[in-house]
Each structure stands twice: as structure tokens, then as C-alpha cells.
Amino acid sequence: MSDALPDRLSIDPASPFHDAALLERGIGILFNGVEKTNVEEYCVSEGWIRVAAGTARDRRGNQMTLKLKGRIEPFLRDEA
């Protein structure tokens, strides 16, 4: 398997950007130099991450998220 990470990745199985095999290996995200553990989705080229917004839910019962902009650096956890 290649160590190249995708430009965009989501933990939601309904998303077209979901990759279960890659998520099983473990992905870490550095956002503006700080490691984030609650990232739901990220896009490196557009420079944003989505994080959970507390315990708030939308009308379909899905977790509500916030989009934060900044420098994104994804990495594989199984290397460390």
C-alpha cells in the first residue's frame, strides 16, 4: 500500500471520500502545528478540517460539525 495520503478524507462511511482501509492504519492530523484528535474530515488543498460541534445533532441525528481553516498536515500513525 502506498504511503501517499489522499487530498481529502472523511470518517463518514456515506461520504465518497471515505477509505476504510486507510482509516484502519490510523491517520493523524496536524492543524496549524497542533495535533487534533477529533477531525471528522479534512481537505489539504482547500486548507480546512471539520470537527464535531459539541453534542449538537442535526435533524437526521448526525453530529453537527464546524469547518476550520488553516494549514493541514496529515500523517500515518502506524509509522510512529
Rank of each mutant, 00 (worst) to 15 (best):
S10R: 01
G54H: 12
L66H: 08
A52M: 13
S2C: 09
R60N: 12
A53T: 14
S2G: 14
A53Q: 15
K36Q: 12
G33F: 09
R8F: 07
E35I: 05
R71E: 12
E24L: 12
P74G: 05
N62W: 01
D12V: 00
D19A: 08
D19Y: 08
L23Y: 07
D7L: 04
I11W: 00
R25C: 00
L22M: 09
N62H: 03
D78E: 10
V39F: 01
K67W: 14
M64H: 15
A14Q: 10
R60I: 07
E46P: 13
D12N: 03
D19N: 10
R25I: 00
E41M: 00
Y42N: 01
W48G: 04
L22E: 07
L9H: 00
S2E: 09
I29P: 00
M64R: 14
L23K: 07
L5W: 03
C43L: 05
R71P: 12
G47D: 06
V51N: 03
L22D: 06
N32F: 08
E24S: 14
T37D: 09
A14R: 08
A14P: 09
S2R: 10
A21Q: 12
K36G: 08
D7T: 06
A52S: 15
N32T: 04
D58F: 11
D58Q: 12
V44Y: 05
V34H: 08
A14C: 13
N62A: 02
F75D: 04
I49G: 02
G28A: 02
P13N: 04
L22W: 10
R57E: 14
K67A: 13
G47W: 09
E24D: 13
G61A: 09
P16R: 05
L22V: 06
W48A: 03
E46W: 14
R71N: 13
A53M: 13
L23C: 04
R50H: 09
A14T: 10
G61Q: 10
D3T: 07
G47V: 02
T37Q: 12
G70K: 09
E73K: 05
G61D: 09
A80E: 13
L66M: 09
R25A: 00
D3W: 12
E41G: 01
V51T: 04
C43N: 05
W48S: 02
N62C: 01
S10D: 03
E73H: 06
A4H: 14
R57S: 12
G47P: 06
V34F: 10
P6C: 05
A20C: 14
A56G: 13
G54L: 11
S10G: 01
I49L: 06
D3Y: 09
K69H: 14
D12A: 01
